[in-house]
Design a protein around this nucleic acid. Structure first.
Lengths: 348, 348
DNA sequence: CCCAAATATGTAATCGTTTACATAGAGGGC
DNA sequence: GCCCTCTATGTAAACGATTACATATTTGGG
């Protein structure tokens, strides 16, 4: 591999001058500048970023710690991060990790000397244990918050989104509305449940524990929860699944049970994943701007980095939006306008 | 930040000994070992990977260059890579890049000193221009091949998969089978087209240029191609879309045109993305093991790295599998068994 | 009891950069 | 002609680790 020394020798200049030319720092005569450029180009010299970052103590890299995410969510959040990172001259070091305290600590330690900051997404962690991360580099918490104000965080407007969706169900006449919850240890799930309850209370509807079913964000959970719900003597007329995957399971179970959606049972989800519009009937959901989630997390992180982690901590939220389709009734048959679907779902 | 020197000073030992303890290299007395461990732990010392990789010239990091991929494909291929990389103690440095020669070169240059090897996925590039990548570090080409034997590559068994799908259509009685192609500059698309033609020829069916429509892997392309196809005086009875996204567009267009699938028109796709089974009717497709694609690409790269890039180059393919659902007819109503759908599509 | 081998530790070079400081020559004001 | 200020360049010290080599101590065989 050709190093800066080789270039210097070949150009009969000192490494300092070569470095200055390559970084555009310090005064260099136009003549030498041209010479060195020419030599470096001819020798195909490429600076060694590792060496550079050792001396500058800047890696121009952001660490990203993710739990085991699937599908659209994963790719879209990374897309948002990468777009923002690249625009600021940063790279992304991605690592999936167990979402427990030890896994995260290990992963963050491994980032030392590799990244200038880390985005940690760990919805399954209770806030407490994240409090004193073993880190002197900036950290942004994604989809979870720390108890104190110690760490920047970015979350989804879960509570408000859920509240609006349930309010919508109430507005089209439902009174018995079931929810399929996510894991109680999951921050997003907990907040969505809170929004559901809040909305019912606001409408003066009594909470019924029988209508709150356990779930874990999988299609299977949605499926089996439905079987329990329709066995109730006093059936709900609407089901709010805490995410779209479970809602898909719900639709599947209802179809098999011969229960018409939305006529006999309204169904709503959360996330508005791309599949939602293709379901039969198209699924009403709470839209989450995933790209924005990633982009803003990186913005937050970059802010922490430029301020050397010595800045007032922020807590931000990305806002959600209600997307009403046929599964909740009250809306004429909507069909997706294909001309606008410009995305390659799988490009290959 | 506490360095190895700080630890050495605190433990009243030399940095060499500290290093030896931390790396388990060289002989160290049990007593010193314990002491140093204790001190390092107490001081919360974390080795600086940047410095380490400078001297060892190993970054334990793999670069990944991806085009602008969406959805399941992106996340699944990264999942496969990360699983394999982590199992071998490597990290993943991910970068999306323009898939043209310049973009790739720049990106690979930026990897110098950051990664020990690079996986380059660039289906849109013609092989030629990839030939002499400016790289001394190992490179694996994903979903494209170089002309010579210069670079390791891993591709999808596109041709065979397409051939089998078309053969299936023929076997259930179709003779007029249309294809919606991908971009001609796309390697996968070209190979799928080749498989389609091969299959028809094998069955003694004349190729009809009118039945080969342009497409670009988007839903919109599938949609508009259908409009042309059904306007033909001699309509096809089956449509093979070169990927699932276009097949979804096809289904959408047929539904609007009141053409029954599969009775009046059979439809098949390629990739078998998760949506496929949820379509109405469920979409027959050619399954591509995306996780495996990522995993094996990394295996290939690691092989190149351990052999210091001085190894016979390989060309490998991941094999596809026919997945017949209702959209091609000839199969009883299949419903997805929800109990086995264990995945969180969107976990949040 | 001596010497070789094994064990434990230290010293210092090295990886490929950046950059503070030093140096040297040129130009200009007085 | 002197001194100061620029400009252009070079020297060498970092950055934080690993490791070859040197050194000192212990062990054990004869």
């Amino acid at each position: 591999m050709v190093t800066i020394k080789d270039v210097a020798r070949e150009a009969k200049m000192s490494v300092a001058t070569v470095s200055r030319v390559l970084n555009g720092s310090g005064p260099v005569s136009e003549e030498t500048r041209r010479l060195i450029r020419e030599v470096a180009g001819r020798m195909r010299y490429v600076p060694h970023s590792g060496a550079r970052s050792l001396i500058t103590s800047k890696t121009q890299t952001l660490g990203v710690l993710l739990p085991d995410l699937y599908g659209e969510f994963f790719s879209e959040v990374i897309r948002g991060m990468d777009d923002t990172a690249q625009r600021n001259g940063f790279h992304l070091l991605i690592s999936r990790a167990y979402a427990d305290r030890h896994g995260i600590e290990t992963a963050i330690r491994a980032m030392r000397g590799r990244a200038d900051g880390v985005v940690v997404m760990s919805p399954d962690l209770d806030a407490e244990s994240l409090l004193n991360l073993p880190s002197t580099i900036p950290v942004v918490l994604l989809c979870s918050v720390s108890r104190g104000n110690e760490i920047d965080s970015l979350t989804i407007q879960n509570c408000r989104g859920a509240r609006e969706m349930v309010a919508h169900l109430i507005s089209v006449g439902h009174r018995r509305i079931a929810i399929i919850k996510g894991s109680p240890r999951n921050y997003d799930a907990a907040e969505r449940l809170r929004g559901y309850r809040m909305s019912l209370r606001e409408a003066g509807i009594m909470l019924d524990p029988l209508l709150e079913r356990e779930g874990d964000f999988t299609e299977a959970a949605g499926y089996s929860a439905v079987l329990k719900l329709i066995a109730l003597k006093n059936r709900p007329t609407a089901i709010f699944a805490a995410n779209d995957s479970m809602a898909i399971g719900v639709l599947s179970a209802l179809r098999e049970s011969g229960i018409a959606v939305p006529e006999e049972m309204a169904v709503a989800g959360f996330d508005d994943i791309p599949l939602a519009r293709y379901m039969d009937p198209p699924l009403s959901s709470v839209h989450v701007p995933i790209w924005e989630l990633g982009a803003r997390a990186v913005d937050l992180l970059l802010h922490g980095i430029t301020h050397k982690n010595d800045h007032p901590r922020r807590r931000e939220r990305v806002s959600t939006k209600l997307v009403i389709r046929r599964s909740t009734g009250g809306v004429p048959a909507e069909r997706p306008p294909p001309q606008t679907l410009k995305r390659k779902l799988v490009s290959v």
